[in-house]
Design a binder for these strands. Structure first.
Lengths: 146, 146
DNA sequence: AATCCTGTCCTATGGAGATAGATCAGGATG
DNA sequence: CATCCTGATCTATCTCCATAGGACAGGATT
């Protein structure tokens, strides 16, 4: 029985981020965006191992970290389940944000910006925004150059 | 003399990304966004070492990788200089995209989405967009979970 | 020429992440 | 009860990353 939906893990070897951390971050992302709710089941350790071709210990390490954070709960014989949520934003708002972001991505794509470029711009803008709100006076430019 | 502008490196220890790779990625980002152009000088190895409190070999490793990619050129006695560009999008378009993205970030912030949540949404949307264009039939949501 | 500043190379060392493989423990099912 | 599936644990090993510290090479400046 496969009662609940399960997250499907992905790996990006080029990112340089340790495998176990990628798993942790993916669960956290899914929680933030409401794709996972308390009670949902995470992929079985052995399934993740098989589909990602990684070591059981790596998955265990990720699950252990999630449990330490209080986000999940491992139940031997049953699986690993979501215990808490990180979702502080309503679904309607998220949908709206998603839709408008999709428009932006589409524009960027039209102009010729690739995914890496989009990510670079996004990171730059978010950092900019954060610094502007806290620092106020951005003494030495953020993405600036000098 | 400081003829040319220089990028200012940052480190994010929490990201899990190896230090040297962070440096490489920052240069690439700056190239994509037009913050760095051919002829610009990168921070001196010893300066980066001092400001980031890391090992010279770590900086060297990053610079060597950039040179291998054909993006930079190290000139003993002078410094390391940008040799190529990754910028395929015009500055006006980038500025426009940046401005509209800033608006989106502001909206997201208003609704209560934090930086991590924004990053999660962004990654999800970009992936979604990429899959939709290649795969075609992604019946129901991509960010779904399956 | 002498000096300084720059990038470059080298060896050795320690730590974190991932792997392999075996084993134990808790719950469900026959 | 016996069996199966699940997560959890353990030890040993391997690789990559970063560090420490010393030394060399090319160009500019005096």
């Amino acid at each position: 029985m496969d009662g609940g939906a399960a997250l499907e893990f992905r790996l990006d070897p080029a990112s340089g981020v340790p495998t176990s951390q990628q798993l942790v971050q993916q669960v956290e992302h899914a929680l933030r965006l409401g794709y996972l709710k308390p009670g949902d089941r995470l992929p079985k350790v052995r399934d993740a191992v098989a589909s990602l071709a990684i070591n059981p210990n790596t998955v265990l390490k990720a699950y252990r970290e999630l449990e330490l954070k209080g986000l999940t709960e491992g139940r031997p014989g049953q699986g690993t389940f979501i215990k808490a949520t990180l979702n502080r934003v309503g679904l309607p708002e998220l949908t709206k944000l998603r839709r408008s972001l999709l428009g932006w991505v589409s524009d960027a794509d039209t102009v010729g910006l690739d995914a890496d470029g989009m990510a670079a711009l996004f990171a730059s803008v978010v950092r900019d925004f954060a610094e502007r709100r806290s620092g106020g006076a951005v003494a030495e430019g953020s993405e600036r150059v000098a």
